[in-house]
Write a protein that binds this DNA or RNA. Structure first.
Lengths: 159, 159
DNA sequence: CTTATTATTTAGCCTACCTAATTATATTGC
DNA sequence: GCAATATAATTAGGTAGGCTAAATAATAAG
């Protein structure tokens, strides 16, 4: 591989790696990003299905395993942001629903979340923001279509 | 907030969220992604400075804390991929160097590891890649410092 | 009615980071 | 020259956000 290209590749990798860490700060004190993702998903699902979402449904749509969803729901349930109810039609399943408190947190968090990104948009300016969006999208599409499944896909498969 | 701005923000959030999911994965069996990043960095630094890299130098350039670097170097040292030596000019510092085994691992891993990203670099081209790196870095630094108030435009001085 | 399948949970582990405090050395101010 | 301060690295312990394998419970299939 040519030298300049190797260096560019390395810098890009580093940039991606740092970037991944951005999602770790909590947008709202007392609530984790992963928990917020559950709440947002739940809200979305409940707009078309009032009965709530099954663990497996959340797991599938969020692309995480069900034990992961279970844990997150545990935390949210303890704080009264969601509720668990056995599905009467299939008692193996549980239906997770948002409580009023959960709704309130979503409202609050959405604003904080949005504020963070919108301040970035202001900081970068319109032109750079559009560039960034375009480049991310382009990269996403390329990597998705070329999923050689090395860096991007599995390869983390435990042996 | 103005409307176009709001839409830009929304798009940026979407792009980030989609993009983040792509960046997962681990390197070759027996070596972690984070360790490989150290090795690559070390190799690069050693091309211009044979004496090796200080922990603080790696920490700075990789934008992780020095305890993190220490831990990673520990693991690599145990497996004989790097060596620690006290800097004779400043005995507080240690100089980390690649061993032959480390070089070998890099060789072995490099093609597989770089393949995905380097194909992206080729796809985007040099100019767009550099743009992307810069924008990601800028965004990272901004969001990390999380200073919503400061919208000062000092866009200089990277690295 | 036994067996297989499915949904969720429990237990325990992993990566990739972090902060606070400690240790060892260097640098500065008097 | 030496006490105070600053800096480099390490140690100790924690966190977020996952994961797998095995256990539990309920349903479906033969």
């Amino acid at each position: 591989m040519e030298n300049g290209q190797r260096e560019l590749t390395q810098k890009l990798m580093d940039a991606f790696s740092r970037f991944r860490r951005l999602h770790r700060g909590s947008p709202l004190p007392g609530i984790k990003h992963s928990e917020l993702r559950i709440l947002f998903r739940l809200k979305k699902i409940m707009t078309t299905n009032e009965r709530g979402a099954r663990i497996s449904e959340l797991s599938k749509v969020m692309r995480v395993t069900s034990p992961t969803v279970t844990q997150l729901v545990n935390g949210l349930e303890e704080r009264g942001l969601v509720e668990r109810n056995v599905d009467p039609n299939d008692r193996r399943s549980i239906l997770v629903t948002l409580t009023q408190e959960g709704e309130a947190v979503i409202q609050e968090a959405a604003d904080a979340f949005f504020a963070e990104f919108s301040s970035l948009v202001l900081y970068l300016g319109e032109e750079k923001t559009m560039q960034l969006i375009e480049l991310l999208t382009e990269s996403f599409d390329f990597l998705r279509n070329n999923s050689h499944a090395k860096i991007v896909g599995d390869m983390g498969s435990k042996e």
